[in-house]
Design a protein around this nucleic acid. Structure first.
Length: 407
DNA sequence: TCTGGGGTCCTAGGACCC
DNA sequence: TCTGGGGTCCTAGGACCC
């Protein structure tokens, strides 16, 4: 019998902002940007939630509902820093910790009883320790099932602990709305409602065959979930078997839609630099490069191209993206969002021909040096802007590999 | 309501191969 | 020629999560 904790930080972004500015405490706070900006709420304080403000809501709507709220910009570096502090506290309680996102984690607590006592006592100690070390509150769900632990921490909020005793999973889940089940969103909820299924208990009573007939692989997983089993998607694999990222992407929404080609292409260039940089940090080369294009009416297309060898080099990414853009953009149509997405990693370097590989390695080292310069002096020092003036194209012709000139 | 940004997973059709 | 059956890769789109 396994024991899992799901630890979820309470109003994480807001709580971190409060540590930096204690005057925010107790006030309605909205993290995500200014009320007149294009964007959505990243996090809302409990005081703001009382006015009907919640995450993913457009900032303008949040302002309408709660004009007296304090609107603050998000600080991703701060959240990453505190996420790491959280991780370190969790590691004192279990050797198997997996951060599922920036503000939540699963712990395998199986076999820790001798050291930490029974689950509830360990949870209370963890709770206390978290507050001492980070100044942050969390909620903890405890169960033999990771999914039930996750739902448990949700039910325990704020600042609570909830233990679902083994064997009681289905009974615990039965009265909850189907929407509480991870993986059931707006669409699935509506589909289930039209079948007369509103509670997890309704789901559990249903015939498995009917569910899998109606919703395929997903339906089968759903049947398992309704009984408290870890089934489907992420829940199929044990925790702590973390692999690297499967895709890396950056996107940008303009504050006002634009059809200015120079502006659009320079934005793509910048996005390619950001993606390239992160690919190199991970030592990855992407074989599939994807452009995302969203027009004023919110209609969105994605267009991808795969290259056999893969690349992590800014200019090569940009060449692919620019081709995709020129072939697919309806000229003159104002654009709302642009995105660059990289995936499908190339095999290890060892399998490629050496000469080509050496040259590319050299390029990668040069780009890493540029990354370090950016770290020290900011993004503007080294950039791909030259490519936009056409300089790059000519150099690329003289030197197809795009190498820095040999001395 | 006028809709961010970073991800994961799933489906489905078509190309291509045996 | 009126037409199989897999398997794999690529592409596009969409649901969902935080």
């Amino acid at each position: 019998m396994k024991t899992y904790f799901h630890v979820d930080m309470d109003a994480f972004f807001v709580s971190v902002e409060e540590l930096f500015d204690p005057s925010l405490k107790g006030k309605p706070v909205v993290v995500g940007g200014r009320p007149n900006e294009r964007g959505v709420v990243s996090a809302a304080s409990y005081a703001a939630r009382k006015f009907g403000v919640h995450s993913a809501m457009p900032l303008r709507t949040a302002y309408q509902r709660c004009p007296q709220a304090v609107f603050v910009d998000g600080h991703p570096e701060r959240y990453r820093e505190y996420s790491h502090k959280v991780y370190e506290v969790l590691c004192e309680f279990s050797p198997v910790v997996e951060m599922a996102s920036i503000d939540e984690a699963y712990l395998d607590m199986t076999g820790t009883e001798r050291l930490l006592g029974p689950p509830l006592r360990a949870a209370h100690r963890l709770h206390q320790r978290m507050k001492e070390q980070t100044g942050l509150n969390c909620s903890i769900g405890i169960s033999a099932s990771r999914m039930v632990a996750k739902i448990g921490s949700d039910q325990a909020k704020p600042n609570g602990v909830l233990w679902v005793i083994p064997g009681q999973e289905a009974a615990f889940l039965a009265p909850l709305d189907v929407r509480r089940v991870p993986g059931v969103g707006k669409v699935m909820e509506k589909n289930l409602h039209t079948l007369g299924i509103r509670k997890v208990g309704d789901l559990a009573r249903l015939d498995e065959d009917l569910l899998s007939q109606r919703f395929g692989k997903w339906g089968l997983a759903l049947a398992g979930k309704s009984h408290g089993l870890d089934a489907g998607g992420w829940f199929d694999s044990e925790i702590g078997t973390d692999v690297g990222p499967k895709s890396i992407s950056h996107e940008h929404t303009f504050n006002e839609d634009t059809a200015d080609v120079a502006r659009l292409e320079s934005t793509l260039s910048r996005l390619c630099e950001m993606v390239g940089r992160r690919l190199r940090e991970h030592g990855l080369r992407a074989r599939t490069i994807q452009l995302k294009l969203r027009y004023s009416d919110f209609s969105t297309i994605t267009r991808a191209h795969s290259i056999p060898r893969g690349t992590g080099i800014d200019v090569e990414l940009f060449e692919e993206i620019r081709d995709l853009f020129r072939r697919n953009w309806k000229p003159g149509a104002p654009v709302r969002l642009l995105g660059v997405h990289a995936s499908s990693w190339a095999e290890s370097a060892a399998q490629l021909d050496l000469t080509g590989e050496e040259r590319r390695e050299k390029w990668s080292r040069a780009l890493e040096a540029a990354d370090k310069l950016r770290d020290r002096f900011g993004d503007s020092v080294v950039s791909l802007a030259a490519s936009l003036r056409g300089d790059f194209r000519e150099r690329a012709h003289e030197n197809p590999a795009g190498l820095p000139g040999k001395k």
